[in-house]
Write a protein that binds this DNA or RNA. Structure first.
Lengths: 338, 338
DNA sequence: CTGAAAGCGCTAACAT
DNA sequence: ATGTTAGCGCTTTCAG
């Protein structure tokens, strides 16, 4: 019966308005020059026909799609949906949109980025995903800036926005120590990631500075299942910690669940816990988790500014770092006050 | 210094391979006809140059972008990030990608959809967002199928995938009644949405059938803040319910939080609570919420199938409905057994 | 300020 | 099977 409906093009509008097709184009192009009369006639005709410029055809000429590719691995940790929502809004406000690419074990990052490139995206944001050097080269060759959100990498061609994870790890651990704890463990973030490693070095630094030796350090890989297992292992040992620094709130929740619901321990009565991120759930009374805040709003704003500056003004790649405060809630017990 | 780096085009590859540009095109077009030798030469040249077809230029001709527009209002409720992740994977597996459009109070759905149309998306999925009749007409005119995910609407031009919310509401309420409760309230989902209304009618049906009258019915609008306030109001009245059906897990969590942490009530000791959705958090021990499961996996699969069928085969719009089971956990007290 | 013309990178007839 | 040709819908010189 039907097929592809006939599209309304600039030619149609031009015909109806009695002007040339290029006049129509000018009316819809920001930096244009058209007489008020032309503008009016064209706008009227466009409205009558329901015309809107085909942004893809435009992109073919301008070389800009106003599409930003976002590569993200998993949305399980609440930090990412929050960031995605913020990112999307900030970008929309500046006339850009997000094309989402989920990477995971089966869909590897390299292929995913290639697909992104096929879409001629103007820029790429990766959320907690690393870029191979080869891939970076391809993006660089294509003139497409990429900024790593919440992930660091040596490569000078890559921009990145992170919080100061080493300092954060130190702050968290220092807080536990200041509260009077000595037998402290670290439920580590994935050691294949910069954030996971940095938070762990912050932990070590603080411990060293206090002359303390970690009770244990186990990799929870930032995932609930793994963190659950790590928590069980950590407390199955004869040498139980009295306080633990979890490298993400998401893992802290898993830890808390094991402690309270499997082991029947009290937090902060029996053990103190501190997290990292300050996701919304951390402030809900069920957990009321003491944690290191990652200022997502700021991080998002910086990411967008940085990326657009590179796209629009060809600014250089930069590594930006923000510092987050400690948010004291109720999962850490202060021994002297008790 | 630099500007836009020179793109590698099919012409470059053709030149290097010593064939025509159309030969290159054929090699990269699935239903093509090219001799093994040509294919080989072209592939080699393409690899040497790092060539990949520009999908946008292709779209201009084929009329298909393989981009699906997703309109979503908020990611606060965990149900949506989960759906988004699933949707994205399912679509990627079939060669499509998601262009995300966040709608909210400032960015109204109509403008957002117009922007979507500008990108020549092949189809639209709206997650818990309604379409005006005018908008529907525009999409229809543009030949772009839209499927509403988790939202129903009368319009026959719109496809939709929902769970049976009336039956779900009945099931939830019936469970409370069967547990021996009589003084029951409903923390309603947004009454401006079909799901909110349907779950409420299910609630009423079950109550009526049992000859019971609701203690109260308050609209929590599916948002935490509102649900928190609604919960407080519900229990500030002299006539407190002994059981409540919350129209979403997300609101049930808010309710549980005020019950236990503000009012010092025990659940299920003092009051029973049942939710709707069965998001991951519902199964965590902190809440261990009894709820009605919405089979997201199935819903996503159906959504993708339906949409792609409409895009590729021009199938008709359909309204699909799945039924979710009750997942019994620990927030409902069974009076006879106690 | 405006129209004519060229062409972005690619696919799809059309011949050969 | 392959090259030639004509556009897809639009922006952008270039004349005027």
């Amino acid at each position: 019966m039907n097929g592809t409906p006939p599209r309304v093009t600039a030619v149609d509008v031009a015909r109806l308005a009695g002007v040339s097709q290029s006049a129509v184009s000018r009316v819809f192009t920001p930096g244009a020059s058209a007489s008020p009369r032309t503008v009016e006639k064209v706008r009227a005709a466009a409205k009558a026909l329901g015309y809107r410029p085909n942004v893809l055809a435009r992109s073919l000429i301008t070389g800009r799609t106003r599409i930003i590719g976002l590569v993200v691995a998993y949305l399980e940790n609440q930090f990412y949906p929050v960031a995605l929502e913020l990112l999307s809004h900030a970008l929309q406000d500046r006339g850009y949109h997000i094309l989402v690419f989920m990477a995971n074990s089966t869909r590897r990052v390299p292929e995913v980025v290639e697909e992104l490139l096929d879409y001629q995206v103007d820029g790429i944001i990766t959320a907690s995903v690393a870029m191979s050097s080869e891939l970076t080269a391809r993006c660089e060759a294509a003139g497409i800036p990429v900024v790593l959100f919440n992930r660091g990498q040596e490569d000078p061609r890559l921009s990145e926005v992170t919080s100061d994870n080493v300092a954060g790890g130190r702050l968290a651990t220092g807080h536990l120590i200041a509260a009077g704890h000595r037998r402290i463990a670290h439920l580590m973030g994935w050691q294949g990631s910069s954030t996971g490693r940095d938070r762990a070095v912050g932990f070590r630094q603080a411990m060293d500075a206090a002359g303390l030796v970690p009770v244990s350090m186990i990799d929870g890989q930032y995932q609930r299942e793994t963190a659950l297992a790590a928590a069980r292992e950590m407390f199955a040992r004869p040498d139980r910690p009295e306080a633990v620094f979890a490298a993400s709130d998401h893992m802290a929740f898993a830890l808390l669940d094991v402690l309270r619901h499997e082991l029947g321990l009290s937090v902060p009565g029996d053990v103190s816990v501190i997290g990292f991120d300050d996701v919304p759930l951390a402030s809900w009374p069920v957990y009321d988790l003491t944690t290191i805040r990652q200022p997502v709003q700021d991080m998002v704003a910086m990411t967008v500014d940085l990326l657009l500056r590179q796209i629009e003004g060809a600014g250089p790649p930069r590594k930006l770092r923000v510092t987050g405060p400690l948010v004291s809630r109720s999962t850490v017990r202060h021994k002297d006050q008790n």
